[in-house]
């Protein structure tokens, strides 16, 4: 603002004081308006935390936190309702674990290939393909997991239930693959050429440069990619809601069906939940747990990526 007022005294012959004042006003007005828009995004987070806390607090008045965290039954619709959230967490982690077991090796291999081996022309045409894969709606993946992958797997694994955690886990692994591959490829490409050349000067082969130089140098970025991928797998909803079943089941056995946190929320939201009932609040308590898990992953991922960007 000081620049404008000094300009005002100098320019007073050329431009009217009123004109300059109007310009100063619009500049300040625009700056405040833009700040307000940026603050809306903060309000969204505040709103999320507010809703989750206020709706689940009454829940914890009736269900003790110890029961919530240690009970292995989740039966909100029974006469004798029990709320052991670990039932839902076990299924969530099982599915996410299967997804990562697919996405980590495949994503790493693809990232190494794209950043160290592929010619630029190949890389330029592969990236759009990955974006297209990322753009497929998750309900479609759910349909595919239930009606294509599960019957296919049942021919190999006779005991596989119609709703199981294996098929959605595998499909989800392919689903988060483009994301983990492109984030870790970005991290690898950000490693300075000089480091690679130093490796070649020592007589390293390309494979050795990739595994001994590039991957260690890009490790925080690659780790961030997989932590953020984990966060996505934990929060993914439609694939598990369609294909993993909706029966809360404390198990880590991938051939059984079990409701994840997200599937439970969907299931309860489909029925007409009376506003303010314990079952209604349990949805928000489960959502709160989900939010805390993903928030932890997201923050770790954010700081790892930031540290990586600062390093190079």
């Amino acid at each position: 603002m000081s620049e404008i007022s000094s300009a005002e005294s100098e320019l007073i012959g050329g431009a009217t004081r009123q004109f300059l004042r109007r310009r100063a006003f619009w500049n300040r007005f625009a700056a405040y308006w833009l700040l307000a828009a940026a603050l809306v995004s903060v309000l969204v987070t505040v709103g999320i935390v507010y809703v989750l806390v206020t709706e689940s607090l009454p829940f914890f008045n009736q269900v003790s936190l110890v029961d919530f965290l240690t009970d292995t039954q989740w039966t909100p619709m029974f006469e004798n309702a029990r709320y052991g959230v670990m039932t839902l967490v076990s299924a969530t982690l099982t599915v996410a674990g299967i997804a990562l077991a697919v996405a980590i090796p495949a994503g790493l291999a693809l990232a190494i290939y794209l950043s160290e081996y592929a010619r630029p022309a190949v890389r330029e045409s592969v990236k759009p393909l990955l974006e297209l894969l990322e753009g497929v709606p998750t309900v479609v993946y759910g349909f595919f997991a239930l009606l294509f992958v599960t019957p296919l797997l049942q021919t190999f694994i006779p005991g596989l239930a119609g709703f199981n955690m294996l098929a959605p886990g595998l499909v989800m692994g392919i689903m988060i693959l483009p994301y983990t591959a492109s984030v870790s490829e970005d991290a690898m490409r950000a490693v300075p050429m000089g480091l690679r050349e130093a490796g070649y000067a020592l007589g390293y082969s390309r494979f050795r440069v990739a595994t001994r130089v590039v991957i260690p140098a890009a490790l925080s970025g690659i780790t961030a990619a997989f932590i953020l991928g984990m966060s996505r797998a934990v929060g993914e909803t439609m694939v598990v809601a369609i294909a993993a079943g909706q029966n809360p089941n404390f198990t880590f056995n991938p051939t059984e069906g079990a409701a994840t946190i997200t599937a439970y929320i969907v299931q309860m939201a489909m029925g007409d939940l009376p506003h303010g009932s314990l079952a209604y609040q349990s949805v928000f308590a489960a959502g709160f747990v989900l939010f805390l898990i993903t928030l932890t992953f997201n923050l770790i991922g954010f700081f790892l990526r930031r540290r990586f960007r600062e390093a190079y």
Partner: peptide, 27 residues
């Protein structure tokens, strides 16, 4: 804060936005 917040929002599961809408917009 705004910067961290935007990257965190990008990673919040979509179903959580649904709970925000249910608790705040609907009720």
């Amino acid at each position: 804060i705004i910067d961290i917040n935007v990257s965190n929002l990008a990673g919040v599961p979509s179903i959580i936005y649904g709970l925000l809408a249910l608790g705040l917009f609907v009720y």
